[in-house]
Write a protein that binds this DNA or RNA. Structure first.
Lengths: 352, 352
DNA sequence: AGCAGAATTTGAACCGATACAAAAAGATGT
DNA sequence: ACATCTTTTTGTATCGGTTCAAATTCTGCT
């Protein structure tokens, strides 16, 4: 910056060559005669010129060689949320392989978010569409760069997106618990709407703005119904996807007249908090209550008891997302990945 | 990109104003007459122009408004290593507050690393100086941008750096174990050199290229000596800072004729792996062997038993680093943060 | 020496904006 | 109507490179 005002043109002049040649010395050394190349290099060294400034190149080249990863959450989300971290691992893997950089984009408020998305120096975006997802998509569309949405709730067929088969996953989860013989269920849901939590009647679920949560409830209930369960009586508690409301959800569910013996949690993070809360309340998992997660984050394997869950191919989601950006051909690309039941120790037949 | 070839100049021409005015419409709307502003905006909308391209602005402005975080490890390091994650939280916190973006920079091989550092679009760098630290510093210095090193090993007084008081920390750790009455110690060290692990004689420690590891050994031994321990007899095992070599270290230490009753681990990550391995070998922590960590990562509080450790103010390291970049005044800025002993349950008096 | 073809080098256009001095237009006062 | 301020608008230089057609210099050969 201030330290070096030397630019390519200065070097060229000092070395007595045209700017074009000087440029070639750095970006295509093989085309310039060795003698000239050495002279230019020497002059550059003398002048303290350390090579072309990427800012200049960028403008001409048009490509930044970096992809933006954006969310409406604070930046720390990427390093703290277990799911996000595994997705990021997948993203970094492909970026590393392509030599592409990663820019993290987020913002505290809407205005800043808009600005940050508008001005991020990237070739494309990967969107973590959680809370505030639709807004994030709109903002990014404005930018007219390739982007792909990680469908952590949203499911808009007009844009590229990577998601999982929520319905199939939820059905499989339900089948597992139903086959264990449970009769009384509860659901600790991911958000259906923004900024709210609490019990929610089944009848309101179809109006949810987050389709993943909707599909999962649908999947659970479809199978449960097949098993002859009265799904209308199953209590659903909407969390905000984090620990605090998950705990409140447990308190709510377990204080009902006929508390559930099996609980569907729509994320492992919720499930782990749920287990903790159940244990605090003196209940044993899985002997008294079975807990089923969703996501398959690494933490699930290490909690006590290890969590039974529907595992998403989380890292693969990240990989596919990067590929969708890097190999963007202007087409809308939609990928649905399978989920897999991982039975560990948080589920068992109902008590008695 | 390909989708919109419309540029500011086109809008200006179409709206019948000068490019200067068009620019003002977007960046300083208050100076242009409302009527004109609306006309330009309308034209822009018609043409599908969504606002100034940051690439152009960048060149003119010189500032990118993003800081680069670089390491010689793969990019996934930022999302997987517990220490790095907490540092990143601190970094993101300040970046969020300043509206600055974050670019992650790394590379598989040296050549790529050099290129990525040369071409990263950032205003400054924060360097995670672990393995390959000195090289990373050299590469970054070339770039002639402000940078600050996180002294995870290196300690070069000519560059800005954020570190902790390793010597004081190590001394305090040693005092804790010595006061519990331990007589036989072992050390599971962070790397002294690149790409090696295994037992290492005390006499070689002073030649280590990573000064943190050196200081810590010095601190341990200084205090132990005060307590009348024969420090020359203390076995030191150099790990590569991860689980595998840490486990091998335990196997080595515990197979000695007089295995230690207390083990200094130079990181919590090593300590946690060590505890696991000890337990696999049928030893109880802390009844049979005491384990002392270093770092204070969150995981330490949740492992069994909870880890006694020397806690660094990890997030603060990140915060200070960003501040050093953002408030760069060309001065070398060196910060040494204190560490704090956190006694949990992995240390106890020696058996018998 | 003369010439075709290959290897280098040049020069200017261009990438997409912002900034700023100077010009033009408008407002105010007498 | 005229001089004096203000407010807007214009034109153009600049940021720091890359690119590419055209010009120049080298080769090897006859």
């Amino acid at each position: 910056m201030a330290r070096s005002a030397v630019k390519l043109a200065d070097v060229a002049k000092a070395a007595g060559v045209s700017q074009g040649t000087a440029s070639n010395v750095f970006s295509r050394p093989e085309v310039v005669r060795e003698e000239v190349r050495e002279r230019v290099m020497a002059t550059a060294r003398e002048l303290g010129y350390t090579g072309p400034d990427p800012k200049g190149r960028l403008l001409r080249a048009g490509k930044v060689n970096a992809i933006g990863v954006a969310t409406a959450e604070p930046l720390s989300y990427f390093f703290e949320d277990p799911f996000a971290r595994v997705v990021m691992s997948g993203i970094t893997e492909i970026c590393d392989a392509h030599g592409a950089g990663i820019s993290l984009v987020s913002a505290m408020n809407d205005e800043k978010l808009a600005w940050n998305i508008q001005s991020a120096l990237v070739d494309g975006f990967i969107l973590f569409c959680i809370e505030g997802g639709p807004r994030l998509v709109d903002l990014t569309r404005e930018r007219q760069l390739p982007f792909v949405a990680l469908e952590l709730g949203i499911n808009d067929p007009t844009i590229s997106g990577i998601g999982v088969d929520n319905l199939a996953g939820a059905k499989q989860a339900a089948r597992h618990l139903a086959e264990l013989g449970h009769q009384r269920y509860g659901v600790l849901a991911m958000p259906f709407f923004d900024n709210r939590s609490g019990p929610i009647p089944f009848s309101e679920v179809p109006t949810a703005i987050y389709s993943d949560s909707r599909s999962r409830v649908a999947g659970y209930f479809l199978v449960l119904q097949e098993f002859g369960i009265d799904v209308d009586a199953i209590p659903i508690y909407e969390t905000e996807g984090e620990e605090e409301t998950a705990r409140q959800g447990i308190d709510y569910l377990m204080s009902l007249d006929a508390p559930p013996t099996a609980i569907f949690c729509m994320s492992d993070r919720i499930a782990i908090a749920a287990i903790e809360r159940l244990q605090e309340r003196g209940l044993r998992v899985p002997q008294d209550v079975s807990v089923m997660g969703f996501d398959g984050v690494p933490e699930g394997a290490f909690c006590k008891p290890p969590l039974t869950t529907m595992a998403q191919p989380i890292a693969e989601i990240g990989r596919q997302a990067v590929k969708a950006i890097l190999e963007d051909d202007g087409e809308v690309k939609r990928v649905t990945l399978p989920v897999e039941l991982i039975v560990r120790e948080s589920t068992a037949p109902p008590p008695r």
